[in-house]
């Protein structure tokens, strides 16, 4: 989801691939193509006296677990500066210790920034010491009920780049395989810290989950 521009976005660094052979996170049907989530992003900050939360919808459009890749769209509904909902396309890195580790290594995020954000998730607590020791490379994530990711918005889908909003930062994301709930923290050194994203899996009218699917050839 975009945030207000503070300064122009800095270019991101080239990613360093992980070399560990550790087992990655498990498959979860709630984290597959076609799944939708809705919730809010809290955009209040310490400087901001007034609490502000934008309604957010997310749809997963692509998922490639072999490459630790996820992508989709994020729609911010009541953005004060925009006449219409603002839709962005994002790409996600799944922490699997094969393609991506807990350390971002780009997007102006230091290891300290990484640890600081990951520790905001209670489910990360048992992993902290391992990540501090070796980046978490020794962790077996296959039995974890949580999937850790980074989501980086790539472009605006329905508005121009000159819309007065920025997508320079990225999200630290924790997904719960149990109920498909998503928590995230937006990180951009030039934006308000710890903007919280809270999403829940869309259960249609409370009467059921649906699972559409496509297959590329």
């Amino acid at each position: 989801m975009p945030v207000r521009v503070v300064e122009s976005a800095a270019p991101s660094q080239v990613s360093e691939g992980a070399s560990s052979g550790n087992t990655g996170p498990p498959f979860c049907s709630l984290l597959s193509v076609g799944q939708t989530f809705s919730g809010t992003q809290n955009v209040s900050s310490q400087q901001n006296e007034r609490d502000e939360a934008w309604k957010v919808n997310v749809c997963i459009q692509g998922c490639d677990l072999d490459h630790g890749y996820l992508c989709g769209t994020m729609e911010a509904l009541n953005v004060p500066m925009a006449d219409t909902p603002v839709v962005t396309f994002w790409e996600g890195e799944i922490v699997d210790n094969r393609n991506y580790t807990f350390f971002t290594g780009k997007w102006e995020a230091t290891r300290e920034d990484d640890i600081r954000h990951w520790t905001k998730f209670p489910s990360f607590a048992p992993l902290l010491s391992y990540v501090e020791a070796d980046g978490g490379k020794s962790l077996d994530l296959s039995s974890s009920q949580y999937i850790f990711m980074r989501w980086k918005e790539q472009y605006f889908v329905n508005v121009g780049d000159d819309c007065g909003l920025t997508i320079a930062g990225f999200y630290y994301v924790c997904f719960s395989c149990v109920d498909g709930s998503i928590n995230g923290f937006y990180y951009d050194p030039k934006s308000s810290p710890y903007q919280k994203l809270e999403l829940k899996s869309t259960n249609y009218g409370g009467s059921g989950f649906i699972f559409p699917a496509y297959e590329l050839q």
């Binding site: 459009q61 472009y155 889908v157």
Partner: peptide, 13 residues
Amino acid sequence: LRSLSRSVKNLSA
């Protein structure tokens, strides 16, 4: 073109 259109990023756009 089939190979090229495996790009979800471009499909999404």
